[in-house]
Design a binder for these strands. Structure first.
Length: 135
RNA sequence: ACUACAAACCGGGUUAUCGCUAUGCCGCAAGGCAGAGAGGAAAGUCCGGACAGCACAGAGCAAUGCACCGGUUAAGCGCCGGGUCUGCAGUUAGCUGUACAUGCAGCUCCUGCGGAACAGACAGUGCCACAGAAAAUAACUGCCUUACACAGGUUUCCUGUGCAAGGUCAAGGUGAAAACGUGGGGUAAGAGCCCACGGCGUUGCAGGGUAACCUGCAGCGGGGGUAAACCUUGCAUGCUGAAAUGCCAUGUAUACCAAUCCAUGAAGUGGCUCGCUUCGUUCACGCAAGUGAAGAUUGGGUGGGUAGGCAGCUAGAGCUGGUCAGUAAUGAUCAGUCCAGAUAAAUGAUAACCAUGCGCUCCGCGCAUACAGGAUCCGGCUUACAGGUUUGUAGUUGAA
RNA sequence: CGGGUGGUGGCGCAGCCCGGUAGCGCACUUGUAUGGGGUGCAAGGGGUCGCUGGUUCGAAUCCAGUCCACCCGA
């Protein structure tokens, strides 16, 4: 895993309905405003790290706004996920993450990128803590 | 040239780096390359279809929708053209009233820009607040006639007052609305009671028009409004929607409960009724009635499982351009062309330059670039929209 | 994707079917009783009936369009 390409293909996104339901039911949550993050270690997903993104239709009635928020979050995640991915591969765990945008106004890309960075730092810490227990 | 209104159209571009989706090709694979990748409204889900499944001899009732005429279309409550009524504005012409310092008011005709859920109010029922006598087959004040009583006078008559019986809707005032308008005749007083002109409705004839309807002549009629009140008339309509539907895979408990299986029974005809149609198992014993066993069917509930994939899913009432027909909507024909198919759901991020608009401290800098994102697909309607282009109409200014 | 409900003073609701006066409770203001408050009594203010049109003499109510909020269905 030495290549520097920052891809986010179909297999790296959280798509299965069952996995998502389990994530919300049993996973752990924390907030970095304006983001709320759910995560769980789910063994049967295909790749070592899968992520999903959403925004509430209660705060954003127009689908064009929801699409924009999801695209911004996905772009920020794509450019910063490398460290977390390395950690999951080394720890041999399979992590599913879900990002929910809970703010009420359309954000700038810079804000989203900064907050996603904070979230990924915390998740890397969590993965490294879980690592020695598993192995 | 500018401003206002209306209609139609457009609604940012190029390059670089990183990235997303499906397709084709290459590759054992990782992956690489190629050319594609949201809209005029994709929206609201308000109409109409296509397509799919289920149902279907038929009749009546109910329910729902629609309502001037013709055309157009796959279809429509859409669109185009026309008719009628109506709102606003304009000016000229005519008539009437008033004024006569030639204007003002009303009506008719004409022109321009709009609007109309535009069948029926002599089929029936209801409603019309307040005010007013009265809100629907009207008599309060009033006007008039007759009879009676009283008073006065110029005494077999007239006048006045009161009361009773009738006639009447001119005048009064109320109201959104009061029983055709104006003028004349007529009368006890009055009234379309009669006449003239005008207006409305309706019938017949003639002419024009495919028709709605229009024009003319003749006859008849005059007790309102409301059907976006119930309703009546005419026409139309089976129901359900891609979570439709067909298949594969995974997985669970061919599970449990109920009903029916020879009759006054059940099911269907998707609201109801009539009517009609269909079904009503097999084996054993028994002459039969019946008994026993097996199984089947039905649909509802409880419980359990899966929520993954493929098809439907994009070549179509398609798009672009020309020609012809038609006032137009639209159609015919020829040529070219392939233009999103995602599914926790793809078109993004960053940078630079350009374009347009605005502002300023004007070789430049700053800010802004709308409404908004496919979810089976089309035809419309409605709503949102920075800015720009074109055409038409009206006004203002300038030039010739 | 499909279906449904609602919008009326500051808040929660009635009135709408069958058109003519917008009302109820709490809250608010003033007066009064009390030394003061609560409470009681009396009086009062406050509503473009979501918005835009239409029907009607007249619309919160009927009709059409539109905006917003909420709910349901795998």
């Amino acid at each position: 895993m030495k290549d520097q390409r920052n891809t986010l293909g179909k297999t790296e996104r959280l798509k299965r309905r069952k996995a998502i339901e389990q994530l919300f039911k049993k996973g752990k949550h924390f907030s970095v405003f304006p983001l709320r993050v759910s995560y769980a270690f789910i063994p049967y997903i295909e790749t070592s790290l899968q992520a999903g993104f959403t925004a509430s239709s209660r705060h954003f009635g127009k689908s064009t706004d929801r699409n924009r928020i999801k695209r911004l979050m996905r772009e920020a995640y794509r450019l910063q996920k490398q460290q977390l991915q390395d950690a999951t591969v080394q720890g041999n765990v399979k992590l599913a993450i879900f990002f929910i945008y809970v703010g009420k106004e359309l954000p700038d890309y810079n804000v989203v990128s900064e907050k996603i960075g904070v979230v990924l730092q915390r998740l890397s810490g969590i993965v490294n803590e879980a690592n020695p227990q598993n192995t």
